[in-house]
Amino acid sequence: MYGNAYIDPNAKLPSILEGEDPVKLAEFEARIARGEKIEPQDWMPKEYRRQLVRMIEQHAHSEIIGALPEGTWITRAPGFRRKLALIAKVQDEVGHGQLLYSAAETLGKSREDMINDLISGKSKYSNVFNYPAKTWADSAVIAWLIDAGAIVNQLANSKGSYGPYCRALDRICAEEAFHLKYGHDNVVFLATGTDVQRAMVQDALTRWWPPIMHFFGPSDRSSKHTEILMRWKVKMASNDDMRQQFLNMYVPKIWDLGLVLPDPNLKKNNETGLWEYTEPDWDEFKRVINGDGPCNAERLAVRRTAEENGRWVVNALRKPDEKYVTPLA
């Protein structure tokens, strides 16, 4: 599960095309325009490589860290079937992380460097996972709506230009289909259950709505950067377009259950066909993504502890004379 890769709008961007060979660049762009995939061995602009590493790496971290809020409820899942399903979902997320780390490695960044950058806070992951899953119903809302948002994003990106990333996303999207249905089933079960269950899922939805609205990131339609990344099929749709697509697909399903979303301005404008909503608090988004959220410290501590506690196994099995090689694709 994953939102959009976050580009700080105030960050100074390098001149994207500076120093690139114009002939190779033209061939590269023509290949993408023809719908061909780029493979690891192919020539690519420096900025294409840099942006893809950043994006795939953030996506991989999001899968690994995303397993934590839901994993909170594994020990107390209500019933054997729910517990089995939740464990399976969390295992899938971790597996997706592995697929994505491999895809990023084909671009030349080592797995250790990615893990170091995650734990040091240099690399980001999807901001929603810095919020706690307070009740079982939170895990249901995450499984349904965060995964729904992730699918909108991942389906778009699976049509992108980088071969290894597209192949990883094809596998991931196929598995996410179960996550979405599992989450929906879980929310419907609570929403059509007792008054207590219904109140619990309504509370969870109210809590998660602001992070869900943050999920696709701030508006980036007018960015010059977006324009080039979209031409290179690194980015497949603007953040606003994906948010609109998500609202269009899921708000009616939420309302069908008689649940209330905490935004009195949320409605579809039938003339424009677009959803109108209260702009979420982007200052909070920036504060949380830069480290000051309710769970940032815990998420990174869990990852650091896992790395430290498991290190002896990694070391015991390593053969010093064997040289690691980058995976093929």
């Binding site: 080592s110 250790e112 734990i119 501590a301 502890t305 430290e308 990694v314 690691y324």
Partner: peptide
Amino acid sequence: RNEMDADATFGGLESMDQWQT
């Protein structure tokens, strides 16, 4: 259960110091 220290530092991993693919 793991009693994780929020202030602990991480030594970092060495690049390319890993298993085969």
